[in-house]
Design a binder for these strands. Sequence first.
RNA 1: UGGGGCGUCGUCAAGUGGCAAGACACAUGGUUUUGGUCCAUGCAUUCGCAGGUUCGAAUCCUGCCGCCCCAGCCA
Length: 571
Amino acid sequence: MTSESKRDQKNDTPETGDESLDFIRTIVSADLEAGKNEGRIQTRFPPEPNGYLHIGHAKAILISYGIAQQFGGKFNLRFDDTNPEKEEVEYVDSIMRDMRWLGAEWEDRLFHASDYFGTLYEWAQHLIREGKAYVCSLDGEQMREYRGTVKEPGRPSPDRERPAEESLELLEGMRTGEFPEGAYTLRAKIDMAHANMLMRDPLLYRIRKAHHHRTGDAWNIYPMYDYAHGQSDAIEGITHSLCSLEFEVHRPLYEWFIENLPVPYKPRQIEFARLNLTYTVMSKRKLLQLVEEDRVGGWDDPRMPTICGLRRLGYTSESIRRFCDRIGVAKRDSTVDLDLLKWSLREELNRTADRVMAVLRPLKVVITNYPEGQVEDIECVNNPEDESAGTRMVPFSGELWIEQDDFREEAPRKFFRLKPGAEVRLKHAYFIKCDEVIKDDAGNVIELRCSYDPETRGGNSPDGRKVKGTLQWVSTRHAVEAEVRLYDNLFREPFPEEGGHFLENLNPNSLEVLTGCKLEPGLAEAGDGFRCQFMRHGYFCTDSVDNKPGALVFNRTVTLKDRWAKIEAKK
RNA sequence: UGGGGCGUCGUCAAGUGGCAAGACACAUGGUUUUGGUCCAUGCAUUCGCAGGUUCGAAUCCUGCCGCCCCAGCCA
């Protein structure tokens, strides 16, 4: 381990102790020290199964899971399935798959808010008996009127003083399906003049005659988030219920239920800022819109910030974990630079990905002085960052593909690649010099005639002469063909939601599909989960959906840094 | 402008009265058989602003300014 990575680890992976802790870990650590919760730590991730997980969820998952891990606690997965109209099993499955991939392990602690519908119902009856809840007959519009505004207090519902017996009976009727949707609601009796709108007699239950993916048709009423969430935490013995900032205003209500119900445990809610990333959108609604309007190929389109999208693009779960460590946990709204995510990936792949030669936009090179029909096996280093990765043999011949971009007939000063009369190195092979440029009738360069120096085998000249450029190459006879998908940011603006509609800021060049790309022959067998660096291009992986033996399809996960592109762009 | 939050480098983010960590980005130079990696150097006299307390303030006090969240029978 280098001193660099040691330092990183120290900074990014706080230990219980000397290193600085984020504000949540500071609280957790203090609670532990104070002997709260019998020394237990238990956290949870409570997704609603109505969409796919994205990188923002990854942050939330990794915070809760990471804290449980770090402090010797437990981590639960609980589906917040209180709204049967929007929730589907498809989402349940994808959420579990993505969480496992991220490494967040809930062991045998998989729960559903719907597991607690019975208890929740009994507790609702308890509140009614205590005079702290009542069945209300106001409809949606009336409810809004009675609630007041942020500046004006609300008015009590005419049903606020309904006798407990009557409310109990009506609630039972609601449950058994006696009333149509919207006829009644159950509300907590708190304070219609409270400055916090959520405390103005919030709804506990609404009538919904919908089929639930787990409870079927057993219920005609379903609990609201505020009534289900905190109680579920309490039932499971959650000690620290971590959520995003927008739930901060819900905390007084969360605590009101905990104080007014016979709950077995008293969890504590703590809020942190959710993740935003440049050049993408994170709201479920917008992601769903991209999918439904076919702006992308689906939830797992490699341009999506979803976990499955990032996975298909070629991201490793390790790089996402490291990214989340690096961005930290705080309460201020922030938007992290996408470059930091990309850097987290490159940092890992630079160490772990084997290098391979691929020519994406081929240009033919004929080596005129190379012995007719000869083929040589050239030994190539797999990973200069990792000697244990070893070497491989790649066939070299007198007819090769090189990258079109690696040749300029009229080249600028600092162009180190091939140009008429200039000499470059073919990686691991020989020096070649460009003698002649062949063009078609339209004037396009279609072939280069070059000569090689047999003395430079392996890439060094005995006479000590230097070349500035080193190019990757593929022997035409041995090349395997592939489709290569070059992905770029989904949006062309760092803040796509700012100024106008986000769809107007979609990047029209977020995907470029290249066919007939030439790869070194060893890649013919590349199967599922294969990942490598296409030398001088970037990191690529086989596409998990479309790659087949004999029909290779690669995705560009992320480019390499490109100083030359920067120099060119300046001019 | 009722309530709840938040304002430290371009972006994240440490710091919690003793004199501004780190990472990414950016810039320059070096090394290099990837214009990759790596290495070196630079990059906040200043912590939203204005006062005040103090020998000393990003940290404490007062006032102001800005941004985010809350009026779904969504979560």
